[in-house]
Amino acid sequence: MGKTSLKMMILSALFCAIIAVCAQISITFLPPVPFTMQNFAVALTVVILGRRYGTLAILLYILVGAIGVPVFAKFNAGLPVLVGPTGGYLIGYIVSAFVMGTMIDRGKLTFMKAFIVNIVGLAIIHVAGVIQLKLVGSMTWDKAIGIDITFILPDLIKIILASYIGIQVRRRLALAGLLPNSLNNEKIVA
């Protein structure tokens, strides 16, 4: 096993821990909507680590939560969260990380691109969420979608913020020379 791959594996594990920490932080930007940093940290992880290790970090996060460590929002944890009606949103993170990573690994990263990538990721998360909500909650499609839609607007606000902050963080990490060589530093144009 090469040194870079061991280091990247440890890095994914640490990013998984960072997502767990961020899921417990909530900041109120627009008074009624608390901004949980969970999906924000997920998006950021993919932007920084790229497809392979980003997806790995998200997969780890879901697994660590599934085995009962309170890493999901509000210190929730365990298999019940995943098999429950809203578990699809968490499982959707894995798929969306893979797709978002694939898109980010190509070409330059601008705010517009980060925003589009995040929209695609959000759509995947919501589709996975609706499917599980329908199956576990035994609802009709229109009811499951109806419940889902109430969360789309706050999520849209979140991803605009995530795209903005993600590019800022990535640029600062690049300036500090911390992004691994496999991630091309010249990609960042913000």
């Binding site: 594990a13 821990a17 890493v71």
Partner: peptide, 13 residues
Amino acid sequence: LMMSISLRFIPTL
């Protein structure tokens, strides 16, 4: 291995 590393570092972080 990675799961164990995350478990170890969550409290620290």
